Simulated scan of single mutants.
Amino acid sequence: MTAIDQAITRACSLPCWTDPQDAEPLGGGITNINITLSDQGKKYVVRLGQDIPEHSVLRFNELAISRAAEAAGISPRIHYSEPGALVLEYVESRAMVEEDLHDHQTLISVAKLIRDVHTNVTDIVRGPIVTFWVFHVVRDYAAFLKENGSVHIPKLQALLDEASALERSVGKIDLVLGHNDLLPANILQAEDRLWLVDWEYGGFNSPLFDLGGVATNCSLPEEAEHLLLKTYFGADPDPALLRSYNAMKCGSLLRETMWSMVSEITSEIDFDYGAYTAENLSRYERAITNIFPQRGLK
């Protein structure tokens, strides 16, 4: 039995169903296996996944933030949950791609959605919630990669030195509840609104991490980045904000790169993590060279 077959069997066996039908995999996930199915005329998404300690993914945290995002009207309604499984109502929509956010009106809508997350979900979320500080994540990933004999060990010290310089450049931050994984595929475009899904990396962070994540994951040009920041903050960004933002943007790319390096070792999902590492490392190197042209950071 394949991993997908096992996932479908698990999804259909959950006690929340009367007569589950039409179960099939939902593509796109590179951390979890997602299954869609129907029951009593309604369609659902079943997210299957255990805690992932090497990525600091804790399902109690994901559930708490998903509940808050539902209450804020940002994420679909939770139908059922148990350890290792989260069932959401299916919403008719399509996952965004990079090019969608190159449209200025769409980008403005996404900037407002991010601001709503940081304002409303922060106020609603209950219970203990993790802190997602990207530079701690990077240091933790580096230690894991060394302990597990990664092929990327020769690169790590230079990346850690750069991470320290970026952390200093970010400076003092505001603290909000962030999504922290703003890939375009996690933003769903319905007929009349946007939804934001997949909260497994959610936690308290700087708002600049989500903003920088959108920019890097969607390859936004400088003009679009300016619009993103202006819409979010309600004013043109000043030089201090731009310096902090650009450093956090590099931190976002470095984290995505090292996430993939770790996943090369640990993940059992059928995905080319090696190519994903190379793609993100290239993006990171271009971005940090724009900030520190000499790359000999002090």
Rank of each mutant, 00 (worst) to 15 (best):
T119V: 10
R126W: 12
E70V: 06
D116S: 09
V125E: 04
P76L: 11
R126Q: 08
V91Q: 13
V125I: 06
H79E: 09
H118W: 07
L113N: 00
E98H: 13
I129C: 03
E70G: 05
V97G: 02
L86W: 15
P128S: 12
E89N: 06
K112W: 07
H104C: 00
A85E: 00
I74D: 01
H104I: 04
L88T: 02
A95V: 04
H102T: 00
N120G: 09
L113T: 02
A95T: 07
E70I: 08
L107V: 03
V87Y: 05
I124K: 14
V121Q: 05
L107A: 00
E92I: 09
G84A: 09
H118M: 06
R115C: 04
G73V: 13
A85H: 03
L86C: 12
L86Q: 04
S75H: 14
D100E: 11
L88W: 09
H79F: 10
E98P: 00
I78K: 06
H102I: 00
P83D: 03
D100C: 08
S109R: 10
P83L: 08
E98D: 08
G127H: 11
I78A: 07
G73L: 07
V97K: 13
A111E: 14
L88F: 15
H118N: 14
L107I: 01
E82I: 02
A95H: 09
M96L: 10
R77F: 15
I78M: 09
S93N: 14
T106W: 04
H102F: 00
H79G: 12
P83I: 02
R94A: 07
T122R: 11
L86I: 11
I108G: 11
A111Y: 12
G127P: 04
L88V: 03
P76Y: 15
E70P: 07
